[in-house]
Design a binder for these strands. Structure first.
Lengths: 141, 141
DNA sequence: CCGCAACTGATATAGTATAACAAAACAGTT
DNA sequence: AACTGTTTTGTTATACTATATCAGTTGCGG
């Protein structure tokens, strides 16, 4: 039996590196376009790399954006939550123990067995809220 | 100045009725197929009706499913959270004041101004967890 | 060497969502 | 009734997101 996980493949490394470099969520197709000149031409390749990264906790999927972001706390494997600024696109990842235990308490009460939890706040980060970026929107296109 | 909102249009009523009748999340295209024989032929019609229902708090979007569900507590307008059973497809909506104040406290601390909050638990409801529906999946297609 | 598991390539297709424009419905006002 | 602004709908086209499928490859343990 092999103890540790397999190392990341070339493609997986590249995708992770691009996510880290971006510092913001990228869609699978954003990644695909960035990888075109490196010989990656097909969506499945990107999705498969992302699957692996998400499974290993090195990246997260942001459901409300249909996009992916590098994990900023790869060594923690607790529940991750996200605050997403709709003005500048920055995502802050946070782990909130109290939030987590609150949700676990809810599981106890209701018998619901959670396997995956999504917590996403959409709004304006402190900088953008202060800055008069009151009504902007991020467009990737 | 008109005080109350406009009443729902025919299409909006129909979409809401279908969501209520389903008792589960439906995708926009599920709704579109159900409405074809009533003269609705185009995605935008459905999406526009859904926009209205979501704006008014009569329906919610489930981000992790790309689907929509009727609000089970239309008179509350506080934060809604969802527990989604991946075995039977049932969605339980709950409002959790403590969860909400926890997230508001986080806003205070960080200066992040949340406009919209998504909380979604994916897993198995009590019935399915007990029942040995340990590994099933819901497929609409 | 063999077999297994993971990864990739490639093509096709399915599923989700919006842009843009014209037309009609409706409420409130003059 | 005519005017105005807003909302809704119709319609066409398109963009964006994601997976199915099958064949081929690579790496590693037995």
């Amino acid at each position: 039996m092999s103890s540790g996980r397999r190392p990341l493949s070339q493609t997986q490394e590249r995708v992770l590196a691009l996510l880290v470099a971006a510092g913001k969520p990228l869609s699978a197709y954003d990644l695909l376009h960035l990888l075109r000149h490196e010989g990656v031409n097909a969506p499945p390749t990107v999705y498969r790399a992302l699957d692996r990264l998400v499974r290993d906790g090195l990246a997260h999927r942001i459901e409300s954006l249909n996009a992916f972001v590098a994990c900023s706390r790869p060594h923690h494997q607790d529940m991750a939550s996200f605050a997403i600024c709709d003005a500048c696109g920055v995502v802050a990842e946070f782990g909130d123990g109290e939030l987590q235990s609150r949700l676990e308490a809810l599981s106890e009460r209701t018998g619901f067995q959670a396997e995956r939890t999504t917590v996403e706040l959409r709004g304006r980060c402190a900088a953008c809220a202060a800055h008069g970026h009151g009504h902007g929107h991020v467009h990737a296109h």
